[in-house]
């Protein structure tokens, strides 16, 4: 396929994906804004005032980066898993599969769509946070890089989930039983310094901890983890999940008989 045709095919999938989540904005953009807004209000303002300092910052300032990252992770994952599975369920994925679009473009198109929603929700939640605290971003480039890499990792994970899924239940199991515990135990609401050494050791196995803390470092300039190591991990996770998703797509897992 010619290079310009490949680009047009990628652009087509991305536009279709963005059009989809914008069309159903009441289901895709508003709920995370309300949920995270309530977190800001309850944990940040109402309870946060009594908690005092966390990691050297006001509690509301401490949790804002984590909550933004939580919204990015959940929405990047949900966008790809629900959209790709819905395409499978309605069989409209066949539109792409019978066309000459290469597998890696199909993958990149859906992942870019997931990243677009993750970033869009991240921006909405960030804008909302200004009602509760005044954020100052210490490292802008690093903050953007972490958001993009994290949304890519979870978009890829959502894609793999959707490939294997046979029912709508199958795309809600991972977010409920895996993603949510990883996020809540990934240092969104607390510093791992509060945990006993065993708890810290267990937390160190949680990849979300590195994403949240690297993002927090980008905004606040302070982190519980090694930033270079965390970025390396994000790149390795992105590359690894991309390779797995592409392999499954080429194999036709969940798509071709």
């Amino acid at each position: 396929m010619q290079a310009n045709h490949i680009y047009i095919a990628f652009e087509t999938i991305l536009i279709k994906e963005v059009r989809r989540f914008m069309r159903i904005w009441l289901q895709t953009l508003v709920p995370p804004a309300i949920t995270i807004g309530l977190y800001f209000l309850i944990f940040g303002n109402l309870i946060g005032g009594r908690i005092g300092q966390m990691g050297g910052y006001n509690y509301v300032d401490f949790i804002v980066p984590g909550l933004i990252m939580m919204a990015v992770i959940q929405n990047a994952y949900a966008n790809v898993s629900s959209s790709f599975f819905s395409n499978k369920f309605q069989r409209c994925i066949e539109e792409i599969l019978v066309s000459p679009v290469p597998n890696y473009i199909i993958l990149l198109g859906f992942v870019a769509g997931g990243m677009a929603r993750g970033v869009a929700v991240g921006l909405i939640v960030t804008a909302m946070s200004f009602f509760f605290t005044s954020l100052h971003i210490e490292h802008v480039f690093l903050t953007l890089l972490v958001v993009l890499l994290t949304s890519m990792v979870f978009s890829l994970a959502g894609f793999i989930n959707a490939l294997y899924a046979n029912t709508f239940d199958d795309i809600s199991i991972i977010p409920t039983f895996v993603l949510t515990p990883l996020i809540y135990l990934g240092g969104v609401f607390y510093s791992i310094e509060l945990l006993p050494s065993f708890g810290q050791w267990i937390s160190a196995l949680n990849p979300v901890l590195y994403m949240v803390n690297t993002f927090r470092y980008g905004i606040l300039g302070n982190s519980d983890v090694n930033i270079v190591g965390a970025l390396f991990m994000l790149v390795v996770f992105s590359a690894g999940l991309f390779a797995v998703a592409l392999y499954l797509l080429r194999k036709g897992t969940g798509l071709r008989q």
Binding site: I8, A9, T12, R23, Q90, R91, C92, E94, E95, P100
Partner: peptide
């Protein structure tokens, strides 16, 4: 069997398909 998105507009379905073949 019908295999296009039930939520998309008729025109968008055809134009999107054109995009998969490098037409825009």
């Amino acid at each position: 069997e019908i295999n296009f998105s039930q939520f998309e507009k008729v025109g968008d379905i055809v134009i999107t398909q054109a995009g998969y073949y490098g037409l825009r």
